[in-house]
Write a protein that binds this DNA or RNA. Sequence first.
DNA 1: CTTCGACTATCAAAATTCGCATGGGTGACT
DNA 2: AGTCACCCATGCGAATTTTGATAGTCGAAG
Lengths: 225, 225
Amino acid sequence: MRILIVEDDSRLLLQLDQYMQSQGFSVDLADDGEKALYQLQEYDYDLAIIDVGLPSIDGFEVVQRARAMDISCPIIILTARDRWQEKVKGLECGADDYLTKPFVHEELLARVKALIRRSAGQASPIVQKGPLSLDTSANQLYVNEQAVELTAYEYKVIEYLMMNPNKVVSKTEMVEHIYDQDFDLDSNVIEVFVGRLRRKIDKDNIIKPIETLRGRGYRLNVNLQ
Amino acid sequence: MRILIVEDDSRLLLQLDQYMQSQGFSVDLADDGEKALYQLQEYDYDLAIIDVGLPSIDGFEVVQRARAMDISCPIIILTARDRWQEKVKGLECGADDYLTKPFVHEELLARVKALIRRSAGQASPIVQKGPLSLDTSANQLYVNEQAVELTAYEYKVIEYLMMNPNKVVSKTEMVEHIYDQDFDLDSNVIEVFVGRLRRKIDKDNIIKPIETLRGRGYRLNVNLQ
DNA sequence: CTTCGACTATCAAAATTCGCATGGGTGACT
DNA sequence: AGTCACCCATGCGAATTTTGATAGTCGAAG
């Protein structure tokens, strides 16, 4: 985890540097807004800690300009003032958290950890199987990074197959997972959808991701490289 | 945005309920840990505010158990105590933020917004998506830098879509985040609001930002240049 | 190796479901 | 009383799903 600390009081700066390093972080330092913005642009930090009371460009502005430059790492601002308006202003500038000086180091650490934890848990859950990938939160299938538009049931079918790769899935099983309760089992819906999926996924029939196992069902074939 | 407030002091609870509602949130309430956990399990909140001083199951435990159940919504804990150990403990239990009582409502609001923003992967309070930009602190939508006046619900709909760009969002999901519990799910409100938004956002139908995915929901389309 | 029967693929029409526009009604607020 | 936002019911049009018929393929048995 690499973090940036921006603080003009050199005593505090070094103290924080030492503490965060002792906690296993890689720490970069800056002592004014100019340098801070440069560093933020240059490196991809996991988090930044910024004092609002900086000479020339103040902390609020650093945050604002960083956000305008599309820098999205979590930011904690440090404020010496106890007026809630300042804190609100900080958050509205685009900071994620603030801490009022003086503070104990443990509290800073706890907040840093909480923010990093949260910003890590944002990736959308994507299931990758060979050339196929499924973004289950966006309900979107990609074949070789190309988005493929599916209808509601087509999506349900491929989703179920992707959840059970390299496994023979019977048509009964699929029907039971895709439709809620009583559905006419001797219908060829699944065959129809598998057919449509095959055409959409791979027109030229080069990938052959869905294999038919006569009398048993289907299997999503994945080359586990 | 739908939030849960857990607090045993009924006076404060109602006060917060009223305030957060006035700020455009859909609010559910709970006055003990038992109910809170049930609610958290049952609904998909965008955020929870939990007092640590609850009878029977205390706030720390609620957070801990919620996280153990894989509930990942942002959580702010309220603590009456000013001892930093308590705050650190809260964050270590899995909370994302804390606020020390007494606090001014504006400060709570700023933190709530900051957390929701971050959990949507949005660092800045201004969300830019193609020709659309949304100022979440002013509750104002702009289309090509032009302000567009929206009603309360129209705003909630576009906000939720902007927080989930390029993602298929089902109508159920939208209803659940926009209204608080007990709302008739099979109603066509969402369709009506989407229709009105489309007309307001782009009269001439050139931008087509909101795409319909039959049987699945809607998707805010953003050209990721 | 061939044949037969069962299983699967494909197609297009039919049936169904879904989404949208519209207008009326209700309740809140002025 | 008037305005405004919102909710609800309706009916049309369109996209999707289902059906049923037909053609094709596979594999086991002879």
